[in-house]
């Protein structure tokens, strides 16, 4: 029986005009060759990226297109058939392996129960103790690190260039990212201690009861770490007095102590109590009264 006949009505158009198809495929392959040669030249002279990309892309694509078309239109398609031989073995072959497994292990385990138990115990212990060095040497236990920042009583507020912040630096409505002096260049300082300083108004302002002395001259300082996932709360919507986290759109109301008004953030941004020293520079009254940033199991 022939693979195919040219007068077969089911034969595809392409297969009935093999010469024409062959010519088209040849053209594709030539375009592919030209493209790849062009890529070589473009790379050699360090042409613009899009020239390099265009040549290698066109070259590879047309070379592949030609080959695929050759396979699709000019090679035997069949349909050919292949029998599926059952994957399963015969019943007796199955029994043979099961019997060998069960009987041999049965003999071994029954006769030498203690040896088997000892080996299994040893392997089990190894499995457990192997985890200890793996986990323990990867990093330190968190300890108290998530609860504390570098803000201490008397910490001087500085900007990212290390310049202390004077009481006249910000106008009402002004905003600045500050760090405790000495930590403005450290990764830790930038990642954990970052605090957003907002001058809310001209006179001292109380965000919440019990924070009467925290905002001297209208300066309010909040942790810049979103309580949702720790993104910097980098946007200040001045008219609405909202701090906005660009990651998941949590919004914090500055006037009442950065209580979340919208979005997935669960807690207010912790406020840092400030005072103004005798030279007129802003300092922290003490550390944050709670851990900053997102929630975690040990946070109480």
């Amino acid at each position: 029986m022939p693979v195919a006949r040219l007068d077969d009505p089911h034969l595809k158009e392409a297969a009935r005009n093999p010469k024409r198809t062959e010519n088209i495929i040849a053209i594709c392959l030539v375009v592919g060759i030209l493209g790849l040669a062009g890529f070589g030249a473009a790379y050699w002279v360090n042409a613009a990226p899009w020239v390099i990309a265009g040549t290698i892309g066109v070259g590879l694509f047309f070379l592949g297109f030609g080959l695929t078309a050759w396979g699709k239109y000019l090679m035997p398609q069949g349909p050919f058939v292949e029998e599926r031989h059952p994957l399963a073995s015969t019943e007796s072959e199955r029994d043979a392996i099961s019997a060998a497994l069960v009987e041999r292990t049965g003999v071994v385990v029954k006769r030498r129960k203690m040896l088997g138990g000892l080996f299994a115990g040893g392997a089990g212990i190894f499995g457990i103790v192997a985890l200890f060095p793996l986990l323990r040497s990867l990093g330190p236990v968190p300890g108290n690190t998530l609860n504390v920042t570098n803000w201490k009583a008397g910490s001087l507020l500085v900007d990212s260039n290390g310049r202390p912040v004077h009481r006249d630096d910000l106008q009402p409505g002004g905003i600045l990212t500050v760090f405790p002096a000495g930590y403005e260049n450290s990764e830790e300082g930038q990642a954990i201690d970052q605090t957003v300083l907002i001058r809310y108004q001209d006179v001292s302002y109380t965000t919440q009861p019990g924070r009467e002395s925290w905002g001297p001259a209208g300066y309010l300082a909040f942790s810049k770490l979103c309580t949702h996932l720790g993104c910097p709360v980098g946007l200040y919507e001045q008219q609405l007095e909202l701090l906005v986290c660009p990651c998941h759109q949590s919004m914090f109301n500055v006037a009442d102590g950065c209580v979340p008004e919208f979005g997935p953030a669960p807690r207010p941004l912790p406020q840092l109590a400030l005072y103004i020293d005798s030279a007129g520079y802003l300092r922290a009254q003490g550390p944050y009264d709670q851990p900053v940033g997102p929630g975690f199991w040990e946070r109480s």
Binding site: G32, A53, G54, I56, G57, V58, G59, L60, F61, F62, L63, G64, F65, G66, L67, T68, A69, W70, G71, K72, M75, P76, Q77, G78, P79, F80, V81, E82
Partner: peptide, 26 residues
């Protein structure tokens, strides 16, 4: 039922590798 590994499928799939690579390059 279909076309055989060699040469038909091999030609088509090898060509397709080049087409995918070329498309990604573009």
């Amino acid at each position: 039922v279909g076309s055989p590994m060699f040469p038909t499928f091999m030609a088509k799939t090898t060509g397709f590798l080049f087409m995918v690579a070329g498309g990604i390059a573009l």
